[in-house]
Amino acid sequence: MGCFCSKHSRQTPGYEEPTILASETSFTVSEVEALYELFKKLSSSIIDDGLIHKEEFQFALFRNSNKRNLFADRIFDLFDVKRNGVIEFGEFVRSLSVFHPNTPQSDKIAFAFRLYDLRYTGYIEREELKEMVLALLNESDLILSDDVVETIVDKTFIDADSKGDGKIDMEEWKEFVARNPSLMKNMTLPYLKDITLAFPSFVVNSEVED
């Protein structure tokens, strides 16, 4: 007789036990189980191998698997902790946990810094900031002249680079975010608190009680 809730279906590469993931993140065991339902959906949308490929990530964000976007690339790269070109379940849960409403603001601020430190130098440099502004303009309907872009980047740099050495370090970033808290808005997904409601099928599949 078949059993649809068997562990067999969960032997996908990179699968990690929800109890362990819950102990290391802001999620409860039930929430990790619900995230597995979301993960299964995302990781089977193009290639059904239990791993999220970049095309699948892009498809989930834009409903278009070919849409290139600097920021989606950055998020994917940070989620792909092992740097093997795919997001495994454990990586997915640990990275999404940064966006949980209960996660300390300091973790969110550090993640955002890494996101914007395009060349992994430990600093956000002016050139990187300009590159990101241009990428944003490229993906939106906004048209700004190069002079206006230069002014925006200059003003931001003067404001953020309090030491005046031409680059923004983590300490300056923390101070800048404290003065501009709206910058952290997209680092919290209220949805993650309701994830068990969004993916209730985990209740059928759940192997662990919270």
Binding site: E139, L142, L189
Partner: peptide, 25 residues
């Protein structure tokens, strides 16, 4: 209005940073 924003505010409006799309059915 965008010209008055700081660069990071502008960047944070990117669709690529809006992960709530991942949860859309």
């Amino acid at each position: 209005k965008p010209a008055a924003m700081n660069a990071f505010e502008l960047i944070s409006t990117s669709q690529g940073l809006n992960l709530s799309s991942l949860f859309e059915k």
